[in-house]
Amino acid sequence: MEIPYIVEPRQDTGLNNGKLGIWLFLASEVMLFGALFAAYIMMRVGGPTWPLGASILNVPMATLNTLVLITSSITMVMAWASLMRRNYSAYQLYMFATVGLGLVFLTVKYFEYGHKFHDGLYPSTSTFLAIYFTLTGLHMLHVIAGMVVITYFALAGRSMFRKNPQWLTNRVENTGLFWHFVDLVWIFLFPVLYLM
């Protein structure tokens, strides 16, 4: 028994199963972060005062992290392009680069969080910090999840590549879609939390 359209697209929809699946998943993610942004707006509009993010948070570090995530997006898309060219070693290199950049992001975040805790700033301190920690924390979980999947495909990809390179390419493309989405969320988080 074989499930159809795992690799090849179905003719009338032009899609394979995984592609449609990941986009539906991302649609639900949009709603998840949408609800959190709605909470942010409500807190901000409802509160008597709202601090400027930059007066509490570290903008240079966040700028660095933004650049790191954007760079990791380009390495991710290069990994996929390498697979399209059937160049496995370049693919593996780009995948590890992506994971490495993810690690850089987490390290910077670790120092940022540590700094806040050191200064006695906790989620319970103010509504601003509460929404800051919730949004960035949840985003961080997404980064970690993405890194786990990318590491898996970087390490276990070779046998998949030998068996069915197109399938691996599709799966890496879908992983990339998730990774770019995580990047995209950060693109909004950065100005909303740090600069406004």
């Binding site: 899609l15 592609k19 986009w23 649609a27 709603m31 949408g34 942004f37 707006i41 409500m42 509009v45």
Partner: peptide, 24 residues
């Protein structure tokens, strides 16, 4: 098909963002 799914999602996303406006 995917654009249609996303368009639907975006509509509901904006409905969600309207929450605070409605409350105020």
């Amino acid at each position: 098909l995917i654009l249609a799914v996303l368009a639907l999602t975006v509509v509901f996303f904006f409905v969600l963002l309207l929450l605070p406006v409605m409350t105020s």
